[in-house]
Structure formats: structure tokens, C-alpha cells
Amino acid sequence: MTFPMKIDLEKLVTSVFQDVFMTSFRMNMRMDGPGAYLLNGEAHIAGAVGFIGDMTGVAYIYLPVSLARRLTSIVVGIDEADVDADEMINDSVGEIANMIVGGFKGKLSQSNILCVLTIPSIVRGSNFVVEPVSDTERFVCSFRTETNQQVVVEVLIKPSKPE
């Protein structure tokens, strides 16, 4: 099994990511290009979903909690001020990650790369870093909302074993 070229991965992740944001939130996400997530002291949240099979890895979606609250209010249909439980925000971010990685999995299956997904998990904090172990293939892509808030998708892929 050979992994897709990096450019394909970027195209694939970008299209799935933009589709999820447009369909669920009617948000047109502008691509910033490859880049790290900028922690600026604000509280942040990351949703993670793993995939195991012909391709194995994990994908993270990073975003500020303020944006996560806004997305939750849109998706659930309540005022932002009424999104009062962290659990509700966690669940929404987990579902966003699930939809993005689910779409990613679907695109991979078109190239006969089959995998199953893990359940979503959440990381919260104002200062954290996800570091891949050596040899892990890493792809990071940054997007911006219309109000210039940053959302980053990071995909870590386990190297394939020689066939």
C-alpha cells in the first residue's frame, strides 16, 4: 500500500473540511495554506478521530472555544449565550471531527483504501501541543473564517510497512 501524495492529501482534506463547514454552518472557510495552529492564550479545543485499516492515523481539528461555541449555537439552533455546557460544545466539536474524518474515509475508499474510525475524543486547554512520534507522516492545513478565526486540521499518518 502506498500513501497518497501529499498534494492529494491536502486537496482531499481541504475539500472535505470546506464541505462540512459549508453544509453544517453555511461558512465559507478560506484556506490559509499549510501552517501550525497559533495558540494566542485564548482557550482552545481540539477534536480527534482516529482511522485504522489500510491507512492508520489520527486527525485533529483545532479551534478556539469561542468559535466552537458559535458553531454549536448554529448547529443546534440556539443563541450563543445559551450554549452554557462544555459537554454540548465537546459533543459538537467531536461530531465535526467525526464528519470531517468520515468524509476523508469516504474519499479514501474510492481509491480502495479502507479503514474504520474510532470514536471522537476532545482535548481542551490554552497551551497544548500535539507532537507526532518520529517517522509519522504529518499534514497540517490552516483555514480562516470570515471573521478571521483560525481552524487547523492536522492529520498524522503511520508509515506503511513495506509490502
Binding site: 468524509g103 474515509k105 469516504g106 474519499k107 475508499s109 474510525l117
Partner: peptide, 9 residues
């Protein structure tokens, strides 16, 4: 309802 759009699914 599924988040996984894969052909197998």
C-alpha cells in the same frame, strides 16, 4: 445516518 461515506459502508 452515518458520517462515513465510504463505498463499503
Amino acid at each position: 445516518l452515518t458520517a462515513e461515506a465510504g463505498r463499503d459502508n
